[in-house]
């Protein structure tokens, strides 16, 4: 039945520009709805005001060059320090990893691989930017193997098999702002963005409104998650 098909799939919600603390409060509320009331899976797309967030294991030496006007929050997610700000599209995933098709078990790593795949597909299909994952690392890179450039970061948290936190895709943020931290603990990581990659390839980048970018990205994300068994 087409009506039923239309209703399936992890649903997107667009929050626009939002402070880090407001986003955390709304994300936690969504987690409770999923846990206590079985609310279906969702990805919340948003843009943050400028903020540095650090995963639990971030060494203080990764944060020593932060300007005074940049707030720092500890985030209970995986990964180390990262920067969020205007021009970056963040996606917070509240998805019950147990709700998987067939006999497949909940699996955090396959979930992270699906997120990487969704972002990569979007970048190829919409922007002709070819991407790859790197063995032993989490995130999405472009460029050559000798000089990889990171275009998206991922940091997930799981409680009772329901995810929170998610990913951040650099659309056109101020890349210089990443220089005040050691992004995700890797000092050799060069950060890049969709705009920069288009310019390097000699193409003009005409930015769409962020909610349309989110809609395009979500189609790829939904398909990549569905292929791994996360259908709703």
């Amino acid at each position: 039945m087409p009506g039923v098909l239309f209703m399936t799939g992890i649903h997107p919600e667009y929050w626009g520009m939002i402070s880090y603390s407001d986003a955390m409060a709304r994300m936690d509320q969504a987690w409770r709805l999923a846990h206590e009331h079985g609310a279906p899976g969702a990805i919340f797309y948003l843009e943050h005001e400028e903020v540095i967030t650090c995963g639990r294991a971030t060494p203080p030496s990764h944060l020593h060059r932060i300007p005074h006007d940049l707030p720092v929050h500890e985030a209970p997610r995986g990964g180390l320090a990262t920067y969020h700000g205007p021009g970056q599209l963040a996606g917070y995933c509240v998805i019950d990893l147990k709700r998987r098709a067939g006999p497949m078990k909940p699996d955090i790593h396959e979930f992270i691989r699906a997120i990487e795949e969704g972002i990569s597909r979007f970048l190829v299909v919409q922007h002709q930017i070819s991407c790859y994952s790197r063995e032993g690392l989490t995130g999405v890179w472009t460029g050559s193997a000798e000089s990889p450039r990171k275009i998206a970061s991922i940091g997930i948290s799981v409680r009772r098999w329901i995810t929170t936190h998610g990913f951040a895709l650099n659309v056109e943020p101020d890349l210089a702002r990443f220089e005040c931290i050691v992004p995700c603990g890797n000092s050799k990581d060069e950060m890049t963005s969709i705009r920069r990659e288009c310019e390097l390839a000699g193409r003009q980048y005409d930015r769409l409104p962020q909610n349309l970018i989110a809609a395009q990205l979500h189609e790829c994300m939904k398909a990549a998650l569905a292929e791994k068994g996360w259908l709703e």
Binding site: G55, R77, G78, I108, I112, I154, G155, S157, V158, R160
Partner: peptide
């Protein structure tokens, strides 16, 4: 406790 594997945190309840 909280543990981490491959950029994913999980709380042990």
């Amino acid at each position: 406790a909280e543990i981490e594997a491959d950029k994913a945190n999980m709380e042990i309840e």
